[in-house]
């Protein structure tokens, strides 16, 4: 299987121990074996279907409808100061 679990887990930002990777491996292998059946289906000249409703996007008028709610919203945040959401220092 070309499913590089540590690499994919990194892309998805999910910490996984060696044990967890070992435990999930056979389950993912089963799932991927089932999915691999897809590859054999002939889809020449078939257009992909991304949404069941082949309709067009509706557009909204350019109107400001929202008011300042940041105090309410930030009550739900794990770490806030000076109206800012805080994360460990990002070095650029």
């Amino acid at each position: 299987m070309s499913f590089d679990i540590p690499k994919v887990a990194y892309l998805a930002r999910i910490a996984m121990s060696e044990e967890e990777i070992a435990a999930v491996k056979p389950k993912l292998e089963n799932v991927m074996a089932m999915i691999d059946d897809l590859v054999k289906i002939d889809t020449t000249n078939v257009a992909p279907l991304a949404s069941p409703l082949e309709q067009y996007q509706t557009l909204r008028e350019d109107v400001v409808t929202e008011t300042d709610q940041h105090v309410t919203y930030q009550k739900l945040a794990p770490k806030v100061a000076a109206d800012l959401y805080l994360v460990p220092q990002v070095i650029e």
Binding site: F3, I5, V8, A9, L11, A12, I14, V24, K27, L28, V31, M32, I35, L38, V39, I41, T43, V46, A47, P48, L49, A50
Partner: peptide, 28 residues
């Protein structure tokens, strides 16, 4: 598990084989 599978099928080199192919079969 589903996040891992989803991340994998969209990742570089697998998109066409899995995701795009799935959307085509979806049309079938």
């Amino acid at each position: 598990r589903r996040i891992l599978v989803g991340t994998y099928v969209l990742s570089a080199g697998y998109y066409d084989a899995y995701y795009l192919q799935a959307q085509k079969v979806r049309r079938l």
